[in-house]
Nucleic acid binder design. Structure first.
Lengths: 358, 358
DNA sequence: AACTCGCTCGACAACGTTGTCAGATTGCTA
DNA sequence: TAGCAATCTGACAACGTTGTCGAGCGAGTT
């Protein structure tokens, strides 16, 4: 004999199970979903059939039919799943989702607005129950349909534009200001700024914080010591090198993004200035404490952001309602060494060095 | 007037579109799928209706009905989406999948066999078209049903057990041996081993490579200089510290995993031995080149592994068939400094230092 | 003029599942 | 013993979509 039974072509379905167990599909369904109200004998028969056939329910078909139509999957539209910030966020979402057996679709936008739309389209088309978005475009009006249809949407790290939804943001302005105050308190007045693409809202906010903090101390930054649109490590390294080898080089650097910080570190290292020029970076990174000197940063907390975003999502999915709200997750200055290299203006102006409250 | 029209409760469906456009659902379907064979006038009417209602096709329902039943989603069962190896792998999968508009479900196993099964269950239940698995369990027989049903499965980094599927592996044995040969060539005979959980196949292979490479040089490692089951940074640091402060401390360390390497670096640093004790780590990590001294590693190439895994998946999905095959992606020794710290036995035995071919 | 051909279009069924409902069986009460 | 409620079970429809098939129509052929 080649086949013991009718050998259903593809995967076994509930119908195959029911047939083998000698019950109706509905009763088979009752057993596999644990709905109850089935006699022990039939339960056993169905379970036997399930085991024998290796039946796996088709959750896709089930969610098509079920009352709420939930797919128990949420989508994460991230900057790049392989960068530390995004992947920490991703992991935090997963941790919260796991408690509810919800899966995560993740995709990388790479700062490409078209890609952002394509991803969101793909995810909504696949009936994701909710959307977590780190946007790259300058306007997300196109999401209105989804939001109106009742899909919970949370923006993370960058504010929504043209649409009113929950957001979990970092206080970039305050964080940047904190970094600059810290440097000034350690005797620096010539603090350079190296930042990400100005098209990114957070980059603009950090620059704003930098400018205002300096101006609080009556300092006007030199135009040569400001570099924008550094999105790759190599660009940042070149920009830092240019500043540091120019005339009247800065005595401290504020690097407003991860890769920019690392590029600047390379420049400092290769010029042998890493023990002499102070540096505070925005966003923490692994091994920052093992470098020489250890790198002082304004840390964001992507895990906390992810957990908060997920909890907002699930509260909405549970039916809770409230007006769209923006939440701010605080930053934390972690002094490790590079930011405490003294500058030429000790005990700046106002007496004791100004330290932000822990 | 409160509502301009019948205001369909949830998302608009093809039926709503057809109704508004005055055509049958089938014709509406023809338009949105681009099937063709529809007059220009009706195409326009349908497109208008689509735009007016903000209609989005339900890909889930579509794949239920369509001939091949594909969901255009593949699942990645990873160690931890937030660790650099996993996330680089994830990203590589995404890059290949993107070309075909295929999305990725990702989940973290955290070395928990139960979680591995739960994730795979969840993904198959959601009709993922294929599975990429970095296994944590010691046996994956339970996947037989999926494989028989024709779902392409590729194992990455760790070999499948109890089941015969494609695999993309690192040559851990050779990579570890290469690291040890490198250290011996630089004058070390007392090379310690610090490795991950012995329950992980790759950890065992790396240990094997270490032992055999030493034995090639007629060296028998001291039992005190071998530490297994170091899965967290803190454990690794403690173990390294114990070895380095014991009597007859090793002159070189081979750290067989990422976090173990970092833990060992912390121990070296805190004991002030980082310029005196050589170290080669298995698996590269960001910023290894910026540490003092820069860290020599045997690098894996998670991107290449991911791309290869994805290409195997898609070739199978395209209908190509071949017997399950194991592919080995080569490692590469990257000499940066920490591995070239000289040991007490210069020009070891066989004349010129043995360097593996680049 | 009768016929065929090609094209457009819609009715219907089906994908795998679950909600609804009514029928069948059982056990209990009066 | 009749009556009734409680329990179990299956037929059927439906979720949103697409494959199948045949009807309708105008144009071209003999």
């Amino acid at each position: 004999m080649t086949e013991s039974a009718a050998a259903p072509r593809g995967r076994p379905t509930l119908r195959d199970v029911a047939l083998l167990a000698g019950v109706s599909t509905k009763t088979a369904s009752r057993v596999v979903t644990g709905e109850g109200g089935v006699t022990a004998a039939k339960v056993a028969a169905v379970q036997d059939a399930v085991a024998k056939l290796g039946y796996r329910p088709n959750f896709t078909a089930s969610s098509l039919r079920r009352a709420n139509g939930r797919t128990a999957a949420i989508a994460a539209v991230l900057e790049d799943v392989s960068n530390p910030f995004s992947s920490a966020l991703h992991r935090a979402l997963e941790d919260v989702a796991r408690e509810r057996d919800v899966m995560i679709f993740a995709g990388s936008v790479d700062e490409d607005p078209a890609r952002e739309r394509a991803l969101i389209h793909a995810f909504t088309t696949r009936q994701a129950d909710a959307l977590v978005v780190v946007p790259a475009s300058d306007n997300q009006r196109y999401l209105a349909g989804e939001v109106n249809a009742g899909t919970p949407v949370v923006f993370v790290d960058r504010p929504p534009v043209g649409i009113d939804v929950d957001a979990v943001l970092v206080d970039n302005h305050a964080g940047a200001a904190q970094a600059v105050h810290h440097l000034v308190a350690h005797g620096h007045r010539d603090v350079a700024f190296l930042g990400d693409l100005l098209s990114i809202a957070t980059a603009r906010q950090r620059f704003q914080g930098y400018k205002e903090a300096l101006s609080d101390h009556g300092i006007r930054p030199s135009a040569e010591h400001i570099a924008h649109d550094l999105h790759a490590e190599a660009n940042a390294e070149a920009a830092a090198r240019r500043m540091l080898t120019g005339e009247a080089p800065p005595t401290a650097l504020f690097t407003a993004q991860n890769l920019v910080t690392i590029g600047a570190l390379r420049a400092l290292r290769s010029l042998g200035l890493h023990e002499r020029v102070a540096l505070v970076g925005f966003d923490d990174f692994p091994l920052a404490d093992l470098l020489q000197p250890p790198v002082t940063v304004v840390a964001q907390d992507p895990s906390a952001m992810g957990r908060l975003a997920a909890s907002l999502i699930f509260r909405r999915l549970d039916g809770e309602t409230w007006p769209p709200t923006t939440h701010h997750v605080p930053t934390r200055l972690i002094a490790r060494g590079s930011g405490e290299i003294p500058g030429p203006h000790p005990a700046a102006e106002g007496g004791s060095p100004v330290e932000p409250p822990s």
